[in-house]
């Protein structure tokens, strides 16, 4: 059983593209990242999954329940944190959390008290008086009420201070260890790289790649950038993936023996050389920059 499964899920807003033929399979118990440039369709996918908007065609399931017809049942076991928190501005935080608790069958005063303590929430302020980070904490608390099996988070760490980000990541890892599923959309590639088991990349409304991060990490080599009077054929011979190739200026991915490469270029005139380990950002950025398809 998949925690989230979509089948050719498509949403158009009139003639405008939202998402097109999105096919996702998120396994139970994994942290699944969802990244893409602004306007790629991340929020559209989340809103379709939560039935804020209806699919134009295709469909989806959350823990085997239909996202359109079983939306209420889905929300019994799903917590959601939106990217922008627009909760009732003139209502006190305490009342918002009590209101959220009143919807969740499995929530309790004890659980709410623990969450308030863990997230260091000030109950005696109105929502409109809170900073973005503090609003986010309220949103997290209400999403975590009732022990959800699935958390859907849209930019969960934005606005949180580093200490609170750490707390959030600990909460998410703890949920994962309990077998719960987390689906998070983010721009923070480091956050995605550190947390997620798999990542889907969306661009122009379509999923362009799904990456297993553990497998990907084992494939990582080095990113070499050099300027100098070196024959192009030599670089082509070493490079696993050429990122940049201009006159006397090369940037490429190399997974081989670095000693062998250094020796090979030692007889040429080198103006500049930088070698660093490849990281997830290198993988993700190519999709943001336009050559990912």
């Amino acid at each position: 059983m998949y925690a989230i499964e979509t089948v050719n899920l498509t949403k158009y807003y009139g003639k405008n593209r939202g998402i097109i033929d999105v096919n996702l399979k998120v396994k139970e118990g994994e942290i699944f990242g969802f990244i893409g440039p602004n306007g790629a369709g991340k929020s559209t996918l989340i809103r379709t999954l939560l039935n804020f908007i209806y699919p134009t065609r295709g469909g989806g399931y959350i823990l085997e329940r239909d996202i359109v017809t079983d939306s209420k049942a889905i929300k019994e076991f799903t917590g959601y944190v939106p990217s922008e928190i627009k909760y009732y501005g003139q209502v006190f935080v305490k009342d918002i959390l009590d209101y959220a608790k009143s919807f969740k069958k499995d929530s309790s005063d004890e659980q709410l008290r623990k969450l308030i303590q863990l997230l260091d929430i000030d109950l005696n302020k109105k929502m409109a008086e809170l900073s973005l980070g503090n609003k986010k904490k309220v949103a997290l608390a209400q999403a975590l009420l009732g022990n959800p099996s699935l958390l859907i988070l849209d930019e969960p760490a934005s606005g949180l201070d580093p200490l609170m980000q750490k707390t959030l990541f600990e909460i998410l890892m703890d949920m994962k260890n309990q077998g719960k599923t987390i689906f998070l959309s983010s721009h923070n590639l480091v956050e995605v790289g550190n947390l997620c088991d798999r990542v889907a990349i969306i661009k122009d409304g379509r999923i362009v790649d799904t990456i297993d991060l553990k497998a990907k990490l084992s494939e990582f080599g080095r990113i070499i950038e050099l300027k100098g009077n070196i024959p192009k054929e030599l670089i082509q011979g070493f490079a696993d993936d050429i990122i940049l190739s201009e006159e006397d200026h090369y940037k490429f991915k190399y997974r081989g023996d670095i000693d062998k490469f250094i020796k090979a270029i030692s007889s040429y005139q080198v103006e500049d050389l930088s070698i660093r380990k490849e990281n997830l950002e290198d993988t993700f950025l190519k999709y943001y920059e336009g050559d990912g398809e």
Binding site: L50, N51, F52, S71, K72, A73, K75, E76, T78, G79, Y80, P82, E84, K86, Y87, Y88, G89, I96, A100, F103, K104, Q142, A143
Partner: peptide, 14 residues
């Protein structure tokens, strides 16, 4: 208008 529907409709309510 206020965007609060994102709170309300995320709750188990039809």
């Amino acid at each position: 208008v206020e965007g609060t529907i994102e709170f309300l409709y995320a709750q188990p309510v039809c």
